[in-house]
Design a protein around this nucleic acid. Structure first.
Lengths: 226, 226
DNA sequence: TACTTAATGTGAAAAAATTCACAAAAACAC
DNA sequence: GTGTTTTTGTGAATTTTTTCACATTAAGTA
């Protein structure tokens, strides 16, 4: 019997994002090129993994010369996003929604929250510069801004309804902070973020004093890796 | 060459959390027992997966009778957490930190943020009921409340320093919202949450209109699964 | 230029995760 | 009580992911 999950983000893609963050950091530190080895250290993966991931996304370096950081970053930006701006909407202006609407890092990465929605649009209006609309204007605004991606930060109970409305309005991708499995048509991708689970899983490991493989020996992380 | 990553949360454990959320929902809907099939539908995985995961955590059902929801939930709570309360601290009271400190779902799951910290403890003091301390009191308070798990919601630049301080104070598990790979001793578990990456990966898929396997056919999700 | 060294890129091998498939047990029917 | 059906639980098979290993290429050196 097949798996029904609409999962999700491939590991290799997740790591590409990770690599990019590392590259930006290394660049800020004044570096101009990296080897798979360097980047692997920074990202906490194996050099083979880095190369394999690059290979999957058809990113090439120079043999012996490693990778030029700027080229890598440009490739990542251009190939994946074509330097576009992305218009996002956010539904649910509770505490979390409000915080997300103010999260400046989204903007730094060209992800632009053009509008937010709430059943009570007056609630947070004073606290944010991004417009807060009532749910009745969802479709209109999504279509006006050609929004394809939305963030759901509403309570569990209303998440599916909001999701359905978003999909009806033309949204094709959702980051869902409500702890429910949203039912969507197959061409709509959902990425779930469950803050409680993140915390609880850490608690579980701490509780069980689980030793994580490959870290038995801290030297591995910092020392000579030959 | 070995992998250096301090990764992380096993898939099966993540799914156990997912199952629990589903079970709570099903219970609220009035159900008393489930079959692996039912739960799988709700959780968006295969029934085999459910049983395999249960098997890994040594959770047993009754042949032909399925699983009693209350028993399952109790097993999950008792075996994993022994109904303990967990004292957490949160470092970084920016927008995100403030939102997390107010996230009521943590409390519902017995995860109790006993204190928060910020370089400027007066900044958010008026806006929250949880005490906000300066960084100088980190160690004292962590030790007083026997805190083992912390949330880092500080800017990237100071994350490693905060992490080091937490570890020195006795913290064994960290949920890290800063987009850096934290370096920790091997007995400290770190779980990274990168909000930008979550959003960007969705954008990537939407952009590429990637069809997710197993969902080509929506009937699979709702229809007869024989 | 030829020789050495150091890094990439990628099939092959190994490991891990998932799905299959079926024996075993429990519920139900008659 | 016997037979039938349904669902669990788990080794085996399969698929996916990661790591290994090495041929290939480029840079440096004399």
């Amino acid at each position: 019997m097949k798996k029904f999950t609409k999962t999700l983000i491939k590991n290799s893609l997740r790591r590409i994002f990770l690599y990019r963050a590392c590259l930006n950091r290394l660049k800020m530190m004044g570096m101009e090129k990296v080897f798979s080895y360097t980047l692997a250290m920074e990202a906490g993966v194996s050099p083979d993994q880095v190369r394999k991931d690059f290979s999957e996304f058809n990113i090439k370096g120079n043999k012996r010369g490693g990778y030029n950081i700027d080229e890598l970053l440009e490739k990542m930006e251009n190939i994946f996003y074509k330097n576009r701006e992305h218009n996002i909407v956010l539904v649910g202006m509770g505490n979390l929604g409000l915080a997300l609407s103010k999260y400046s890092r989204f903007l730094q990465r060209n992800m632009n929250i053009v509008a937010t929605f709430d059943i009570d649009p007056f609630k947070q209006k004073a606290r944010t510069e991004i417009p807060v609309y009532g749910m009745d204007r969802l479709k209109e605004i999504i279509q006006r801004f050609k929004v394809k991606v939305a963030i759901i930060a509403v309570p569990e109970i209303s998440a599916q309804q909001v999701c359905d409305d978003l999909v009806k309005a033309g949204v094709k991708g959702i980051v869902n902070f409500a702890p429910v499995l949203l039912k969507t048509p197959p061409n709509v991708i959902v990425n779930n973020v469950n803050l409680c689970d993140e915390l609880e899983s850490v608690i579980y490991y701490v509780h069980h004093q689980l030793k994580i493989e490959g870290l038995k020996n801290i030297e591995l992380l910092y020392g000579d890796m030959k």
